[in-house]
């Protein structure tokens, strides 16, 4: 195919038209669109669950007389060992998982971008020191680091979120750094420097917008792994604790009853899979849309 007519790439200077082109390519990817639709409906569920569910009476209140009922028209997903409606708890769990996913990644991204940008832009000693520290964090198994930090901060949703965020900072720092290094040397940065633009402004206005592609992809994929990670920690009792309807801790409780009430395990598990799947699909779709060369 060496002899195909080459189409002159239209100058992708305008940010908006570039976004449009990315959206155009993204839209054509059916799986990615499915992921986006799935994610948006999960967001909708999370946002609206507060309107039709009362946390105290419908999500955590125990009704021992109704315990361990299989799925029925009254309790779509059945009830758990304390008589709580599993459907209500799974729905409420969406709020928790999405909240944790979004905020963990936001914190890790902000701090990681700061470190990565400093290291990538200044290079030299700053880069060396910062990245060696990041290397130390990266050399530790991620889960145990989060577990140790939770141990120091104490349990609870916010602390788990912080621990997960800290454990992820080095990864974002590394991605941002390499994205910046690849842009730093380009001529328009030299031009901005020659014009006397301040470093902070060059980083914020010129470098980061151009590095945004790979970062956005990582954000979605990390949200997926964060949701998985938090569920895992809660499952072994080191994350978000009962009675909060976190999917992992629900599974931890359901484990005791799995022999005779396996449905208790199915629904929270499927909820985790769907939310993680939606984010993975979006991440993959974005990667392909941002870099059409990579699409196979």
């Amino acid at each position: 195919m060496t002899e195909q007519a080459t189409v002159n790439p239209s100058n992708p200077v305008k940010k908006r038209s570039q976004l449009k082109a990315i959206w155009f390519r993204y839209r054509k990817n059916k799986l990615a669109m499915f992921g986006l639709a799935l994610f948006l409906s999960l967001v909708l569920v999370a946002a609206s669950s507060g309107l039709f569910l009362d946390y105290d009476t419908q999500v955590i209140e125990q009704r021992m007389r109704e315990r361990l009922q299989p799925p029925s028209s009254e309790h779509w997903f059945g009830t758990d060992q304390y008589g709580r409606d599993v459907f209500a708890r799974v729905v409420w769990g969406t709020r928790i998982s999405l909240f944790v996913g979004v905020f963990t990644v936001t914190i890790a991204l902000t701090v990681g971008t700061l470190f990565g940008a400093l290291a990538g832009y200044y290079g030299g000693t700053v880069d060396n020191v910062l990245m060696r520290i990041m290397d130390i964090f990266l050399a530790m198994p991620g889960t145990i680091l989060a577990v140790a930090i939770v141990g120091a901060l104490g349990p609870g949703l916010v602390n788990v979120l912080l621990a997960m965020a800290i454990a992820r900072i080095p990864q974002f720092a590394r991605i941002v750094r390499s994205a910046i290094i690849s842009i730093r040397g380009q001529e328009f940065i030299e031009a901005a420097k020659a014009c006397g633009t301040r470093d902070g402004r060059i980083i914020m206005r010129h470098i980061l917008p151009n590095a945004i592609g790979p970062i956005v992809v990582q954000v979605t994929l990390h949200m997926a792994t964060t949701i998985l990670g938090v569920a895992g920690l809660s499952f072994i009792g080191l994350g978000i604790e009962a009675p909060t309807p976190e999917w992992g801790s629900m599974l931890s409780e359901a484990k005791e009853w799995m022999r005779y009430h396996p449905y208790l395990m199915v629904f929270p598990g499927v909820a985790i899979i769907l939310s993680v799947l939606s984010l993975n699909l979006i991440g993959d779709g974005l990667r392909d849309a941002l870099d059409p060369r990579m699409k196979n």
Binding site: A231, G248, L251, G269, V276, N280, D284
Partner: peptide, 15 residues
């Protein structure tokens, strides 16, 4: 493959 990247390993273990 897509499904397997989205399934929590511990849930798979329980199953």
């Amino acid at each position: 493959a897509l499904l397997f990247t989205s399934v929590p390993p511990f849930w798979l273990g329980l199953m």
